[in-house]
Amino acid sequence: MPTVSMAVNGKDVSGEVEGRTLLVEFIRKNLRLTGTHVGCDTSQCGACVVHVNGRSVKSCTMLAVEAEGATVTTLEGLVKDGKMHPMQEAFRDQHGLQCGFCTPGMVMSTIDLLRVNPDPSEAEIRDWLEGNICRCTGYHNIVKAVQQVASGDAA
């Protein structure tokens, strides 16, 4: 079996994987980072979004071996010195999560949105979230959470 090495949440990690192992399986099973979720098998739901080299990626669309040498950040890696990322704070402030299952993907995806578009309109936020499905919130409060971070206001 091939060995794959990458930096995940600031730590160098490596592991043996089958060729068919997906990045999300490597993250969840090998690294035991279970904050990244699997909600579908057709790359539609977005619960597995992580950052690979700074960009949001559905980690079910990528083989673990393709991430060789990459820098990967998961939801767990956003917490710095015990403090949540402003997007995590905003999801709490605005009640942007209920069951929490789609949340890792939502947070990782919307952080990337603000990287490419720091001041999105409501329509742009909704359009960006096309690849992330939430069954609980109706998206209303997720949109508000992104707006909170974009505007720089804390609730």
Partner: peptide, 17 residues
Amino acid sequence: KRKEDQRLLTGKGRYVD
């Protein structure tokens, strides 16, 4: 604000899988 959110937002939720 919800007590549940700290763990769910930081990847520390515990689902069956």
